[in-house]
Design a protein around this nucleic acid. Sequence first.
DNA 1: ACATGGGTGTTACTTTATAACACTCCGCCG
DNA 2: CGGCGGAGTGTTATAAAGTAACACCCATGT
Lengths: 156, 156
Amino acid sequence: MSALHDHTHCIADALTRADALCAERGARLTALRRRVLELVWSSHRPRGAYAILEDLSQQDGKAAAPLTVYRALEFLVEQGLVHRIESLNAYVGCAAPGDVHSGQFLVCEACGDAAEIDDPGVGAAIDAAAAERGFRVQRPTVEVRGLCKSCQENPR
Amino acid sequence: MSALHDHTHCIADALTRADALCAERGARLTALRRRVLELVWSSHRPRGAYAILEDLSQQDGKAAAPLTVYRALEFLVEQGLVHRIESLNAYVGCAAPGDVHSGQFLVCEACGDAAEIDDPGVGAAIDAAAAERGFRVQRPTVEVRGLCKSCQENPR
DNA sequence: ACATGGGTGTTACTTTATAACACTCCGCCG
DNA sequence: CGGCGGAGTGTTATAAAGTAACACCCATGT
Ligand SMILES: [Zn+2]
Ligand SMILES: [Zn+2]
Ligand SMILES: [Zn+2]
Ligand SMILES: [Zn+2]
């Protein structure tokens, strides 16, 4: 997944879909928010808010404050364009914005990649387990740490 | 679950099991670590490290440093006596230490209770989804936010 | 023109977590 | 006995992550 694909494509795609979705919803994808989204998508690895902030400062010359980034991220998460990885305090672009899904991630400890999956089996199992206990699900979080395929095959 | 049971029992039980497990493993459950475990178990709600720190200071009069608590928590997590809830930056006592399990939680947004479950279906679904993608699972995290049964029945 | 509201900038601050280093206790070996 | 070594703890300082309060700008609608 890492170096083996044309990632500029991923970024362009993500931005295009974001434009379309926000237009459709009447949400305002401002220049700043769009730029933050682009920076989140700079790789498939989750990035911390402060890393994005640094990018913003260095690449754009503007010394932004943390709040600037957090506010943009908040918007992007609300719109389902970005997911927050709780176990890393970091953010990653959503692979399928627009679709209803809850965000399930396979996070590689070696390369840091976070592959988003939307496995119906996992979702169903969680719903069943919750229902059995009378628990009403609002926001499931599934973050599996481990080793991705390519990191198993090419150990460091 | 909340006010409807003899929680002193939960605490005593947890400490007894911890004593036994650590003895069995040759791990040193020192006075400090045991005290922190007791404080984590003061409820079924996840507690932050700094909340525990405050308890330590107020109840025991010792003004401890954050590291003191973090080190104790690290030990307790390693021994599987306590779980960390990533989405809350908080810690909660393990319901079944000793057993091999990964920690799945139903966290109530209203009362804050975190019910630990060890649902085989969820575990199996995650294993299957990972296997399908060649991903090697090391540490699954499942934290479901929502409303517990009693909070649905007695809305605030 | 003016009020309104969302987005952004700025400053200061809180909460969460870790680094570096000294000290103590205790079993063990010489 | 005496000193060694390693685990646990104490102390101080610092890093990383996240939020509050308030002012300003600017597009939109009246
Ligand atoms: Zn890509
Ligand atoms: Zn997604
Ligand atoms: Zn209890
Ligand atoms: Zn457990």
